[in-house]
């Protein structure tokens, strides 16, 4: 399964989001390929991710893709990530 962690530049926020998503998925025992990408990469990628994790400000820029888009309010809150990821994957 592929998951995109998205930010404007694809190098800062998205990497932090990926890092914590990796931690949460490992503790949930779920194998996934989490990639940190920019908004434009997420929109233009040939193979769709099942889930897109994104900060709320950028959510409206992700349109017209079939991935489930999950806004993350606090990227340092592992509980929020755990709840939202396990709900999406259950």
């Amino acid at each position: 399964m592929k998951i995109y962690a998205v930010c404007g530049a694809g190098i800062g926020t998205s990497v932090l989001l990926k890092s914590n998503a990796d931690r949460v998925l490992a503790s949930l025992g779920i194998e996934a390929d989490v990639q940190a990408v920019s908004v434009s990469d997420a929109m233009s990628a040939e193979s769709l991710a099942q889930i897109v994790l994104i900060t709320p400000e950028l959510q409206e820029q992700i349109t017209g893709i079939r991935s489930e888009v999950i806004p993350i309010d606090n990227i340092f809150n592992l509980e929020e990530l755990t709840l939202k990821l396990s709900a999406a994957l259950s």
Binding site: C7, G8, A9, G10, I11, G12, T13, L16, S38, V39, T55, E57, L58, Q61, D73, N74, I75, F76, N77
Partner: peptide, 23 residues
């Protein structure tokens, strides 16, 4: 420029922001 283009997405947690641009 990134802030103007994307809005305040640097703000990633309550009270905490990380200002940055691409390499």
């Amino acid at each position: 420029e990134a802030n103007q283009k994307h809005g305040p997405y640097f703000v990633v947690a309550p009270g905490i922001a990380i200002a940055h641009a691409s390499p």
